[in-house]
């Protein structure tokens, strides 16, 4: 079963180890514009090690942009991101590649290489960045796959497995080099509630058992309350909430309340065309004829 294997995994050549004792990630005055639109406006926060952070907010609020900047895939217009003390936004190619070995990323689409089997996908970063023997790599791959409950699917190709299995395989690849940080881009997207629960449990277990820092981009409220040690909510390019899930639940901010409750009315602008279409079709405040509720 996923997350039940407790093995002291070998760490190849100290890959993924953190050097500094300070915050794992420090985001300072990050700003990003696309044309006239300010997506991130002077964002600053710090993430400590061994905790699960959830970054949430409505669609288009800049969550994915923030993630891309934290992994060094996109440059900000202003500000910087310090990853274990290294400014990843201005680092040269070699420094950035070294920094990248300290984190793994689980992509929304899992992003497994379709030409490789699940086991080959997990083995890829180990083979590329270590001098380990093939037999040792195979052992490590098996351990990682067992850790996410995918031991039986090692020889399958990505197109032969379900969405939930792809996510778990992607997670096994993300932790292949024992990173200090794992970024999850909408890990629950497109999964059924049971599989969402499995992934949530994996995130919690990996964080506690391997001592990694997890940064989860999501807007799935049940997941947020299940896994988060701290939540950060973005809206309009700014951080509008930062705190524990308890504080999130009890927040009096209209923005936060609307987002948690999923109200179509409130300070968060729902797409106007949709609201107008809904009103034209069903009238204001009335359920459609024959509608269940």
């Amino acid at each position: 079963m996923a997350g039940q294997v407790n093995i002291d995994l070998p760490r190849p050549r100290g890959e993924g180890q953190l050097r500094s004792e300070g915050p794992v990630i420090k985001v300072e005055h990050l700003t990003k514009r696309y044309g006239d639109k300010v997506v991130l406006d002077d964002i600053s926060f710090e993430l400590a090690r061994g905790r699960v952070y959830v970054i949430m907010g409505p669609s288009g609020c800049g969550k994915s942009t923030l993630l891309r900047m934290m992994i060094g895939a996109e440059a900000p217009d202003a500000g910087r991101v310090l990853l274990d003390g290294v400014d990843i936004t201005t680092a040269d190619k070699r420094t950035r590649e070294e920094a990248r070995r300290k984190f793994g990323v689980l992509f929304q689409s899992s992003a497994l290489l379709n030409g490789l089997t699940v086991a080959e996908n997990v083995a890829l970063p180990i083979a590329q960045h270590t001098d380990l023997l093939r037999s040792t790599i195979d052992l490590m791959v098996r351990l990682k796959l067992e850790l996410v409950g995918m031991g039986d699917a090692a020889d399958k190709f990505p197109y032969e497995i379900s969405g939930g299995m792809k996510k778990r395989a992607g997670l096994a690849r993300a932790i292949a080099l024992d990173p200090a940080i794992v970024f999850y881009d909408e890990p629950s997207a497109g999964l059924d509630p049971v599989m969402v629960g499995v992934i949530d449990k994996l995130i919690k277990d990996l964080t506690s058992k391997l001592g990694i820092t997890s940064v989860v981009i999501t807007h799935e409220m049940p997941s947020i309350f299940r896994i988060a040690d701290e939540a950060i909510m973005l809206y309009g390019g700014k951080i509008v909430f930062q705190g524990s899930p308890g504080a999130l639940r009890n927040s009096s901010s209209p923005l936060v309340r609307q987002f948690i409750n999923g109200d179509p009315e409130g300070p968060i602008n729902a797409p106007r065309q949709l609201a107008e279409l809904s009103e034209r079709l069903f009238g204001s405040g009335r359920a459609p004829a024959g509608g269940a509720s």
Binding site: E97, R100, V105, A111, L124, P125
Partner: peptide, 8 residues
């Protein structure tokens, strides 16, 4: 992008 984040 996954390859890039793996340092490949």
């Amino acid at each position: 992008q996954a390859l890039e984040t793996m340092g490949i």
